Amino acid sequence: MVDVIYPFGRHGDRDLDDLIVDAARAARAFGHRRKDVDGIWLGNLNGGFTRDIFASSLVSQADPALRRKPATQVENACASGSAAIYAACNAIESGRVHIALVVGAEKMTAVAGAETTRILGDCGYVKESGFYPAGFPGIFAQLALDYFRRWGTSPKRLPACGQEPCQWGPESVGTYAQGPGL
């Protein structure tokens, strides 16, 4: 397995199409021809961040050889990219495909802050998240509070948690690529 990681961050000049196509094209240099890809998986929540509801077809814009390849969009809130990887692994393990192209992309800055808050608030199971102040984000807040109590830490530690992976360096995190022999 070879992972290609598009630089994470705010890409104000790029729309969802661009992010998906750029990520799919970045994988081109890793030894497999596009015509050999048996299936495409896209991890993407969307939920209203963009108007592209059926975004898995956008991957085919990266290369004409990807057109008419089966493409599946996988949505699992914050874990959409991971869920797409698992779905592709399941297809490989079943023998249905030999080469899978998996892309994870999200464009959360195309809508105003209040709309982003509403979309993220609707990400949980409505019957459950309605019990928490602030909906789905409230569930994460409660998980964080439970974590602080269990491990004797505080919210002051959270910024360091987000920075530590960046300090490990590209050989650990894979700034652009990681995998066997890379």
Rank of each mutant, 00 (worst) to 15 (best):
Y86M: 07
G152R: 12
A24L: 07
H11Q: 08
F54Q: 08
L143C: 10
H11W: 09
P64G: 06
Q178P: 09
D38I: 07
G138A: 03
G31Q: 14
I85D: 12
A88N: 02
E93F: 14
G124R: 05
A77F: 03
A83C: 08
H98P: 00
K69W: 02
V59W: 03
V173C: 13
D52P: 02
P165W: 00
A87E: 04
L182P: 10
L42Q: 01
A105M: 04
V74P: 09
D22V: 07
R149E: 15
I139G: 05
G31W: 11
A79V: 10
G162K: 14
D15M: 03
A105Y: 04
L101Y: 00
Y132Q: 03
F148Q: 01
L158I: 15
R34G: 12
D13K: 11
G95L: 11
V126P: 11
L158K: 13
A24Q: 01
A55C: 08
D17G: 00
S60D: 06
F140P: 03
G135S: 14
G12Y: 03
V111S: 06
R67H: 04
S80V: 10
H98W: 03
Q142E: 13
V2Q: 12
I40G: 04
L19N: 03
I119T: 09
D18P: 02
I92G: 07
P70I: 05
A87W: 08
P170Y: 07
Y125Q: 05
A134I: 05
I92C: 11
G95I: 08
D146V: 05
N46W: 07
V4M: 15
E171H: 13
G169L: 08
F148L: 02
L66H: 02
D52S: 02
R150S: 05
I20P: 07
N46P: 11
A134Q: 14
A79K: 09
F140S: 06
L101D: 02
I40A: 06
D15A: 08
T116D: 01
A88G: 09
A110G: 01
